[in-house]
Structure formats: C-alpha cells, structure tokens
C-alpha cells in the first residue's frame, strides 16, 4: 500500500486524493505553511487507482473542519479527508464546493473594484458541474482555467 510509505500519524488529519503536484497549493490555501500550523508529512506523485497519481498531506496534531477543507475543493475536488485519533480513523468526509468562495481567488476582471480597493474577494457558486463562479462585486462569471489561473 503506497500510503504506508509515509508514517502513520497518531492524531490529526489526512488529506488524501489531492491531484498530483497540487500539495503545495493545498497547504497554502489551508494556511498550513505557518510555523504553528503543525507538523506536515507529505507524499507526492503516489500511484492511485482513482487519479493515476496523487498527493497526500498528513497534518499532525490538528483536526481540520469540513468548512476549512472545503476551501481546497476548487483545485482538488476529489479530495477525501480522514480525521485520525489514537491511530484510528474516526471521521471521514469528501470535500465539497461551498456556496460561496471567500478570499482565495482573485477576480480576473482588471476593472473590478476588488482589484483596486481593500476588499476580500468573494464569489458565489453559480454551478458546480461545470464549475462556474460569479464575482460578488463586478458580477462577471468565471469558469475553468480562468478559475485555476487566479487562485
């Protein structure tokens, strides 16, 4: 089992099925790069039946909530999350795209007020499949690569 290549954690969160190569973006979005963010164990390019190759991030000593992890749904929609206590998985959930995306995505419209004033960018999710977002401020919609390019 490829998962065994990195140490099993006693307490914390295992973020699995991240698309290969996206682990750095994932820990950035989740704010895990800060010194007090907990110990991270990272496996990248792990063979996966579902994805071909995948990344795994294990966060020791921290339990991430569903709401927190949903922030990464835009770049890693297949992600599954395991909460581990005393070496056992006590909770398991899949990320899902929230109704509103706040703070992690910049509006691609150069004339949008959110790119000029001190404002937290906000997007309403108009459709999940295919993913379509609408800027709360300028009301333009963005899709596909435009979303990924502005994360």
């Amino acid at each position: 089992m490829p998962e065994l290549k990195i140490e099993v954690i006693p307490e914390g969160t295992v973020i699995d099925h991240i698309p290969a190569g996206k682990w750095l973006k994932v820990i950035e979005i989740l704010g895990l790069t800060k010194p007090n963010g907990g110990t991270l164990l990272i496996a990248s390019n792990v063979p996966s039946k579902k994805l071909g190759r995948k990344d795994i991030v294990k966060v020791e000593g921290r339990y991430l909530s569903e709401e927190e992890v949903n922030k990464i749904a835009l770049i890693a929609p297949m992600t599954t999350v395991n909460i581990v206590r005393d070496y056992k998985i006590v909770e398991k959930f899949k990320v899902s795209i929230p109704d509103e995306i706040t703070g992690i995505l910049r509006c691609p419209n150069p004339n949008c007020v959110s790119n000029h004033e001190y404002v937290v960018p906000r997007f309403k999710v108009e459709s999940r499949e295919p993913l379509k977002l609408r800027c709360h401020y300028c009301e333009r919609t963005i899709e596909g690569d435009e979303i990924l390019g502005n994360l």
Binding site: N111, C112, V113, S114, H116, V119, C135, C138
Partner: peptide, 10 residues
C-alpha cells in the same frame, strides 16, 4: 456612479 465594476456594491 463609478467607472469600476462592483464599486456600488462595495
């Protein structure tokens, strides 16, 4: 009235 989109919302 403002030249930037979203200015009124802000």
């Amino acid at each position: 009235r403002h030249p930037m989109e979203g200015a009124a919302r802000l």
